[in-house]
């Protein structure tokens, strides 16, 4: 028995969500007193693979196959099930990102393994059963899910656990997978990389703005704040619906759910649907001219004032702070 963590590299580099997943897997493995394996598909340097060992992975496996260059969840799931079988793993950990959401349910069906998608905490173990916390009702509640199956899959929400570096030496090894051309049913025509520097789903700081900005031409100050803080930009649903901002930035119940360390909401009133997508954030700052805006009830820090006066001043203050550090 062992734990298998599936991680992904972006442009040959692992990012924080991968280290979080390895840390999570290592803690689960420690509870079960078993080994932890890591798996990566694609072209990644030996040193980069070894870096996974710093977070607790014992054995790091990589799969090289030119046909796996593009993402296809059905084929990736086939690769992972083969590695799962070769490493004798009963617990699988993935990252709850776009690819994880596609692969994990296929794995669940294939392995008849219970799946907790979007886990926010380590499992509680009792006999063969795991209980795992997950956000439900779009962040308005938390459910304690029980997994009854022998095999278990956990897809971890980013920013739920801090990566912990350890003194650990890991082995890096290629693993052979049997794939036939018939497995590749999906033809990838084009891949467009996201233009924003920081992915909204993984961002530690998010600067978000709403209708209070009065028009798309006023977003310069929002982008400036994001630049100063190294944050991703987001927006409320009405703003995306009237095409002031791209749909990909829409956070809320019917958009993206984010849980950064810091969420700054500017000119957003805080409708329940918007709060549902952001209330997992550790700290929330609200800037709004309406002191009665419902968002203040959910916030940690608030400023009542005209965003066109407050935001430029705040940007100067952030700049000063950043240059002083």
């Amino acid at each position: 028995m062992s734990v298998l963590v599936y991680v992904e590299a972006t442009d040959g580099k692992f990012k924080k969500p991968s280290f979080e997943a390895i840390t999570y897997g290592a803690k689960v493995a420690a509870m079960l007193n078993v080994e932890i394996h890591a798996l990566c598909i694609g072209e990644v340097s030996d040193d980069e693979l070894k870096s996974l060992g710093n977070y607790g992975a014992n054995k790091i496996w990589f799969v090289k196959d030119e046909r796996l260059k593009n993402f296809d969840p059905l084929v990736y799931a086939k690769v992972i099930t083969q590695v799962e079988s070769q490493t004798n793993s009963d617990v699988l950990v993935l990252i709850q990102n776009f690819n994880g959401k596609a692969i994990a349910p296929i794995l669940s069906a294939r392995l008849k393994a219970g799946l907790i998608s979007g886990a926010v905490d380590l499992p509680l173990m009792s006999g063969d059963s795991f209980t795992v916390k997950k956000n439900v009702f779009s962040g308005k509640a938390i459910a304690n899910y029980e997994m009854h199956s022998a095999k278990k899959i956990i897809a971890l929400t980013s920013n739920s656990i801090a990566p912990v570096a350890t003194e650990n030496k890991a082995t890096v090894q290629e693993i052979k997978i049997e794939l036939t051309d018939a497995d590749f049913k999906l033809k990838v025509k084009e891949v467009v990389k996201a233009s924003c520097k920081i992915s909204l789903a993984d961002a530690e700081i998010v600067v978000s703005a709403g209708r209070g900005m009065k028009g798309p031409e006023n977003w310069g100050m929002i982008e400036e704040m994001a630049n100063i803080l190294g944050a991703a930009t987001a927006c409320s649903r009405p703003v995306a619906d009237i095409n002031w901002r791209p749909h990909g930035e829409h956070v809320g119940q019917t958009g993206l759910t984010v849980r950064p360390n810091l969420y700054i909401a500017i000119g957003i009133s805080g409708a329940i649907q918007h709060l549902a997508g952001v209330n997992g954030s550790k700290v929330m700052v609200v800037i709004n001219k309406d002191a009665e805006a419902p968002f203040f009830k959910a916030a940690d820090y608030g400023i009542v004032g005209d965003v066109f006066e407050v935001v430029p001043k705040l940007n100067e203050a952030f700049k000063k702070f950043k240059s002083g550090n």
């Binding site: 669940s108 008849k112 393994a113 219970g114 799946l115 907790i116 209980t131 916390k133 439900v136 962040g139 308005k140 509640a141 938390i142 459910a143 304690n144 899910y145 029980e146 997994m147 009854h148 199956s149 209330n279 609200v286 203040f296 009830k297 959910a298 916030a299 940690d300 820090y301 608030g302 400023i303 009542v304």
Partner: peptide, 19 residues
């Protein structure tokens, strides 16, 4: 394969500090 044991509501914020 899975079931919900119970639910929790998020911890209420301590209150918003106004600046």
């Amino acid at each position: 394969l899975t079931s919900v044991k119970n639910y929790e509501l998020p911890i209420e914020k301590a209150g918003c500090k106004m600046i």
